[in-house]
Amino acid sequence: MIDHAHDLAAVQNATDRLLSAVAALDNAAVARPSRLPGWTVGHVLSHLARNADALVNVLDGRPMYASAEARDSDIERDAPRPLDVQLEDLRSSHAAFRAQTEVPADWTRTVELRNGVTDTADRVPFRRWAEVELHHVDLGAGYELEDLPEEFTEREIDFLADRFLGSPDVPATRITDGTRAWRTGRQAPQTEVTVQGRPADLLGWLCGRRDGTALELSGGELPKLPPL
């Protein structure tokens, strides 16, 4: 069962860590390349702020973004801003998101995200948690996948394994950290590939942040995953 109140507390903690890390940067860092191809640190920060706005829209029953083009242009527009402006935008957009979550509502209702994807409202806080944690890593500011909360790493592996479950382009795959196990890919009578490794390396592969070379394989090659 999803506990949205628990996840909102986790979003707050993750955002506090992010804000502290951003406050320690300088203006030159905004133009520095991030770990995401083609994006600067400023792009990552502006995306995080605009994503908070977008999730306010989702919870309020409006389209997440006016269009894909508007989403991209807003990020490009905001990316070059000075660090203090970026930081204030992160704070204010987070505050608006939290305010929206405090509006009395049915958390079991269905909401619509991007590209026709739907989910229940109580899963939106976890989606925001994922945005904050993973993009904090993308800043390249000393926060690594190994630093993520254990609960988050396990749940995000579970989320991504489920996302690729049934994908015809991914062989039937067993994922394990030696203690826990997940299944993903095509449905088949037998698992074709087993991928084993540390939780941070498994998550890094699943979310496209690591190439999987640190993982152990049996039964085949490392599956190529669809883009997120």
Rank of each mutant, 00 (worst) to 15 (best):
T40V: 01
T40P: 00
T40N: 01
T40F: 00
V41Q: 11
V41A: 10
G42V: 11
G42R: 13
G42T: 12
G42F: 12
H43S: 01
H43C: 02
V44L: 08
V44W: 08
V44C: 04
V44H: 07
L45K: 03
L45I: 10
L45P: 00
S46E: 12
H47Q: 06
H47P: 01
H47N: 04
L48Y: 06
L48D: 01
L48M: 15
L48R: 06
L48C: 02
L48G: 00
A49R: 09
A49D: 06
R50H: 10
R50D: 06
R50S: 10
R50M: 10
R50I: 09
N51L: 07
N51K: 06
N51R: 05
N51I: 14
N51C: 03
A52T: 04
A52M: 10
D53A: 04
D53E: 07
D53G: 02
A54T: 15
A54Y: 14
A54R: 14
A54K: 11
L55N: 13
V56D: 00
V56N: 01
V56W: 04
V56P: 01
V56E: 01
V58G: 01
V58L: 10
V58K: 14
V58P: 01
V58S: 06
L59F: 03
L59Y: 07
L59G: 00
L59R: 05
L59A: 05
D60I: 02
D60V: 02
G61M: 15
G61Q: 13
R62K: 13
R62T: 02
P63L: 07
P63R: 09
P63G: 02
M64W: 09
M64E: 06
Y65E: 10
Y65T: 12
A66Q: 12
A66D: 08
A66K: 10
S67C: 05
S67G: 07
A68F: 10
E69Q: 06
E69N: 03
E69P: 00
E69W: 03
A70F: 08
R71E: 09
R71H: 14
D72M: 09
D72A: 12
D72W: 09
D72P: 00
S73F: 11
S73Q: 15
D74R: 07
D74F: 05
I75F: 06
I75K: 02
I75D: 02
I75N: 02
E76I: 14
E76Y: 08
E76W: 09
E76V: 15
E76C: 04
E76L: 15
E76M: 14
R77K: 13
R77M: 12
R77S: 11
D78P: 00
D78C: 08
A79R: 07
A79V: 09
A79W: 08
P80K: 10
P80D: 02
P80G: 03
R81Y: 06
P82S: 12
P82W: 15
L83I: 11
L83Q: 05
L83N: 03
L83G: 00
D84Y: 13
V85R: 13
V85H: 09
Q86N: 11
Q86H: 15
L87G: 02
L87D: 03
L87P: 01
L87A: 08
L87H: 08
